[in-house]
Design a protein around this nucleic acid. Structure first.
Lengths: 138, 138
DNA sequence: CGGCATCCTGGGGGATACTG
DNA sequence: CAGTATCCCCCAGGATGCCG
């Protein structure tokens, strides 16, 4: 492994513990819709309806609740204009922006390899990284 | 936004479409346990029981199913030794290793800011990134 | 030890209708 | 337009038990 996760684990091994805040954040950010909503906001502030249209398949309920969660987490900001008809814009906070910088490379990688993975036969099982000599029971 | 998500979106805007493979991968990787399992494997191959012990709160069922999913995705390899008592080791595949390289910085960031976010009052709502002049209805 | 099989429950999440 | 409210369903996921 090129990345020293050991260091991370030493400092934040609590990530593996149930009560750790990391778990919560992970659950919010990595939730089914969390990533997509955050990702959809990377262009800048957009309106509720636009968000809904951009994220295919999301229901009003989930969009609302996801936005509320992310807002409570301080990752997304909500700004409503006292107009009629009502207009509300959502945007990433500075914190959310930082997060997306980390999330960006990941999304790119996933997008690039999605087909490989989705189409993955179990043929790839042989491609083990462990350099051990042992029988494959399977 | 410092990252050019626009480029990504142009090429892979399907990420927002329901049938897109990206969605599937995201759901698997970003699932409640997916990240933690992958993360726990970054030290190298470890045994089933060890995994279970490392990931606090995971049930046998979820560990098994998560491992099977990730294995089918070609991100994790499974190697069983024909011994008695049985021994099975799991490890990241090359693909899984690549993924974790992208996931690493994210995890570090999350771990570092988890407390901020978890403890986030709605006070942070004011910290909007949009430089617009408008009334805050809330 | 390393699992499946089974049962069961909570809440994630969709559909629809209504409101400011 | 931008939500909230309500109903309801489904399955993620925990608990338990058994097997190779």
């Amino acid at each position: 492994m090129k990345v020293s996760f050991s260091d991370l684990r030493e400092q934040y091994d609590g990530a593996f513990r149930e009560n750790c805040p990391t778990r919560t954040v992970l659950d919010h950010v990595m939730s089914k819709w969390g990533v997509l909503v955050l990702f959809a906001l990377t262009d800048g502030a957009i309106r509720w309806g636009e968000l809904r249209r951009r994220i295919d398949g999301i229901s009003e309920k989930m969009l609302s609740s996801t936005l509320r969660t992310l807002e409570a987490d301080g990752l997304v900001s909500r700004r409503s204009y006292p107009e009629v008809p009502p207009r509300v814009e959502y945007a990433l906070t500075d914190l959310g922006g930082e997060l997306m910088e980390k999330l960006g490379p990941l999304m790119e990688w996933v997008a690039a390899h999605a087909d490989d993975i989705a189409a993955a036969p179990d043929a790839r099982r042989a491609e083990s990284r462990v350099g051990r000599e042992a029988d494959q029971t399977t």
